[in-house]
């Protein structure tokens, strides 16, 4: 479970995140929408312990991230916007390395199986990742998350730059993880994808969570209009 409680991050006078409180339960996908600088990535960085909160708490399965940075990471998988791997290592080697340093020793068959589950074609397993497309790298990232058997998955604009097919495949993979009772928090600009896969959607602006919806209770056009109004793009709203 992912929880934030009045989570706040300030840089001097600038407030990057202002008293964010949200909960993502196991088996839920929470999509955070918002323009650049809304505080989405800051939220994820605070949940990963990359940043220290000014006030409030970020909890992973009830444990405070700020005070248990390393132990909470055992339960988190993270896929950044531009996932980069070691270019001179193959997909299997990258997966072996990242899961290995995290404490999981996996046999070769399991590594191949995880890459297959993540949707990577088998002929790419033993190719160096230096020549991989972003979509292929994201799939290795998903395999790393799968290997970790994480209870919480944090995604920072994972579909940006992916072609529609790859984006669709990625959405389906997340649905699969959701079925496995993983709590997923995804920061994205992609309203369509958010509506398609999310169980809950939040709209952020200037570090504040301004709107929250249950995805099934809102249509895509209403979501779009609400988003544009919230962002003050009135001329674009219907």
């Amino acid at each position: 479970m992912i929880t934030t409680n009045n989570l706040t991050k300030k840089y001097g006078d600038f407030t990057a995140l202002n008293q964010l409180s949200l909960t993502v339960n196991p088996g839920e996908i929470y999509c955070l929408l918002g323009a650049n600088g809304a505080g989405k990535s800051t939220t994820i960085n605070l949940l990963l312990g990359f940043l220290k909160p000014t006030s409030g708490v970020a909890l992973i399965n009830g444990k405070d991230v700020a005070t248990n940075t390393i132990s909470t990471k055992k339960d988190i998988a993270y896929i950044p916007e531009n996932l980069m791997l070691y270019p001179t290592l193959t997909a299997v080697e990258n997966l072996d390395y990242f899961s290995g340093i995290g404490g999981q020793k996996l046999p070769k068959e399991t590594l191949e199986s995880l890459l297959s589950q993540a949707g990577l074609q088998s002929d790419a397993f033993y190719k160096r990742t230096g020549a991989f497309s972003k979509g292929m790298r994201q799939k290795v990232g998903i395999a790393i998350a799968l290997a970790k058997e994480a209870k919480a998955l944090l995604l920072d604009e994972p579909t940006s730059g992916l072609d529609p097919k790859a984006s669709n495949e990625f959405g389906r993979l997340l649905q699969g993880l959701k079925q496995n009772n993983v709590a997923i928090l995804m920061a994205t600009h992609d309203l369509f994808r958010a509506k398609e896969i999310a169980t809950n959607i939040g709209i952020m602006k200037n570090g504040k969570l301004l709107e929250q919806f249950v995805s099934d209770e809102i249509s895509l056009p209403v979501l779009e209009e609400t988003y544009l109004k919230t962002m003050n793009y009135k001329e674009l709203a219907v």
Binding site: L48, F50, I70, S71, K73, K74, I76, A77, Y78, I79, P80, N82, L83, M84, L85, Y86, P87, F98, I101, G102, G103, G141, I144, L154
Partner: peptide, 18 residues
């Protein structure tokens, strides 16, 4: 600079030790 640090730092390891 390559962009792999965030993925690395999200693993349960100490960057200092790494």
């Amino acid at each position: 600079e390559r962009g792999s640090l965030r993925l690395l730092a999200s693993q349960p390891i100490s960057i200092k030790k790494w």
